[in-house]
């Protein structure tokens, strides 16, 4: 084992956490150690296999991994870490990641943060401290995997999307296990969330070609920490997904077009997660989010206040079928929707 502990755990109680850093670049590992060793006990590993051996043997509060490494990728490593040591908070530190691995980092590894290289010398220690504190105070719940316990049916899903096809798809995927409410605009969504509590939010990042609402999803998540967010979107740009992870702690990101079967699994898992969050309020803390940019947040809050003051755009949602009648759907199917 070539793992080097630059800061021997002489005074374990004083250390604010045990951190495992994984990268194939020794220079990066040294820089991270030097940056973090003052406040934490830092252990490094040069690759996925070595890191897994360390995780099996020792207890870590935070695992920071690079994505691109020879052999096991960062996403795969963090997924394994999630299974072996669910208490450890997982951070992906990467200079470049393709869309696929970013999506997998959300859906499979359930990472806490996505940090871009080069990191900020002031922010990274703060983030690691926050993660370590959460890991110590709020151990993870039971892992949700394999055969899902059927959700008890008391769950509710709020679907926010401008495309009727998505509403129909969610109805097919989860209509039997949860109550589903359909809205197609932000104002209605805000009203619904004020009226009652929802377990799961299924949202698109774009409502129409010009309305981008990923920040709004983040804000909703800040206001309703127990809401489990599943983003079902066409635009899966790395930046958007990274923001949704860091500021929205979304539970799943599913790129469109989604298959009903896959969506069904994801929604069931989200409903179970919501039940878990409901039963163990503590767990919510494990999904603390980065605050939005102050100016941005203020503007969004103002918009939200405005939205609350507005009357609902559509009548009170019920179990009515998704908007758009058969003729309109046939029309769209024949001529296309004009959305690329």
């Amino acid at each position: 084992m070539s793992a080097i502990s630059l800061n021997p755990p002489a005074s374990g109680t004083e250390s604010r956490g045990r951190i495992l850093c994984v990268d194939d670049e020794p220079n990066i590992l040294r820089a991270l150690s030097w940056l973090l060793q003052k406040d934490f006990e830092v252990v490094t590993a040069a690759g996925g296999d070595e890191a897994l051996a360390l995780v099996r043997r020792d207890d870590f509060d935070v695992v920071i991994s690079d994505q691109r490494m020879p052999g096991m990728s960062g996403v795969d490593l963090l997924r394994e870490v999630k299974a072996i040591a669910p208490r450890a908070m997982r951070i992906l530190l990467t200079g470049y990641a393709d869309v696929q691995s970013v999506l997998r980092s959300v859906n499979e590894s359930e990472i806490f943060r996505y940090v871009a290289k080069p990191w900020s010398v002031t922010e990274l220690p703060k983030l690691v401290a926050q993660a370590a504190a959460i890991a110590r105070r709020h151990p993870a719940g039971a892992p949700i995997a394999g055969d899902l316990p059927a959700p008890d049916g008391k769950g509710s899903i709020l679907v926010l999307d401008g495309d009727p096809a998505t509403h129909a798809l969610v109805e097919v995927a989860a209509g039997d296990v949860a109550e589903i409410v359909h809205v197609s605009n932000v104002v209605d969504a805000v009203h619904c969330l004020i009226d009652r509590e929802f377990s799961v939010l299924v949202a698109e990042t774009h409502l129409g070609p010009s309305i981008e609402i990923s920040r709004f999803i983040c804000l909703l998540k800040q206001r309703h920490p127990r809401l489990v967010a599943v983003v079902l979107a066409e635009d899966s740009a790395t930046d958007t997904v990274a923001r949704l992870v860091n500021q929205g702690q979304i539970y799943r990101f599913i790129p469109k077009p989604a298959k009903a079967g896959y969506l069904r699994l994801a929604l069931r898992s989200a409903l179970v997660k919501a039940e878990q969050l409901h039963a163990q309020g503590e767990l919510v803390k494990r999904h603390a989010v980065d605050a939005l940019d102050t100016e941005e947040a203020a503007r969004l809050e103002a918009d939200l206040a405005l939205a609350q003051s507005l009357v609902r755009v559509s009548p009170a949602p019920s179990d009515a079928p998704p908007p758009g009648n058969r003729l309109a759907r046939a029309w769209r199917r024949f001529f296309g929707t004009g959305r690329a």
Partner: peptide, 9 residues
């Protein structure tokens, strides 16, 4: 990016 990252830090 890699040398920039560790050099900056």
């Amino acid at each position: 990016n890699t040398p920039i990252a560790f050099s900056l830090s």
